[in-house]
Amino acid sequence: MLLELRNLTKVFVARGRRQVRAVDDVSLAIPEGATFGLVGESGSGKSTLARMIPRLIEPTSGEIVYQGQNLCHFSEKQMRAVRQEIQIVFQNPFSSLNPRMTVRQLVGEPLQIHRKASGASLDRQVLSMLETVGLQPEQANRLPHEFSGGQRQRIGIARALILHPKLLILDEPTSALDVSVQAQVLNLLLDLQQRLGLTYLLITHDLGVVHYLCDRAALLYLGAVVEQGPINWIFQRPSHPYTRALLDDVPSVDPDQRMLERVSLEADSFSVHWGGTGCRFAPRCPARQVAACTTVEPPLGALAESEHRVACHLAHPLLAGESV
């Protein structure tokens, strides 16, 4: 495993000492070379999770194990070295690039910081990286605001890739882009992965993107994983009501599939209150049935295919029966 998260938790203390568990006891494992999808709606804690991995946000508890080392014990200096290998591409290409730096400076900065190159060699690397992500070398002296959203995201990707990282965290890399541009950026990411042997952690709310790119995925709801496993299992046998609802919301071009038993979620996670006991999804669950749903938090248990795990009493009738 390239990266393993063990029981990672982040508690934000809001004003008035109200605690918000943005990420709640999340464990994931990402094999080298894989594309791991992390899916959730806004407020599910996925961006917080992403930023905890290179410790831009400090976890409250849990372990971040990268190549066998627990990053939580690293000093700021050691972290800076590790950050060469773990890079983030941010969601919003309009705010993630310093408006006062040219493309050349933006893409070259990581090399400067880590003293990997300077002068002509830095210039050469920057220009060749621009070409890699599909930008013209002549555009190197332009400022970010002269580019379109898709081009800016390419700059962000170039900036992340120039240090030859192993793991690329893609925090909703396409959600701020026009639909026509999204596909271009996704294809670029696929192409780069094949050429450079990258491992991706792709964070998104778009299951279509996950299906297109990922090998495995985890669904995050209110900071906790409710279902995870290989992508085929999740799409063919969605076992959590939340997953099913999300899948039903993916527009389909197949007219036969269109009207088939669609389950839709009406409220969002902000408007429904979860008291902290029982299943966190129960207040919105379209399939609530057993008493345990409101009293016992369902564990993330394995289904018949042991890599496919789901946190739902209905999927584990035996477990639920025992604990009621």
Binding site: L56, R83, I88, S96, P99, M101, P110, R159, L163
Partner: peptide, 19 residues
């Protein structure tokens, strides 16, 4: 975001502030 971005590529505090 670009400040988080600078930290993500390993920029020191001084660099984050001054650059």
């Amino acid at each position: 975001d670009f400040v988080a971005g600078a930290r993500a590529i390993g920029a020191s505090q001084r660099r984050v502030i001054f650059r």
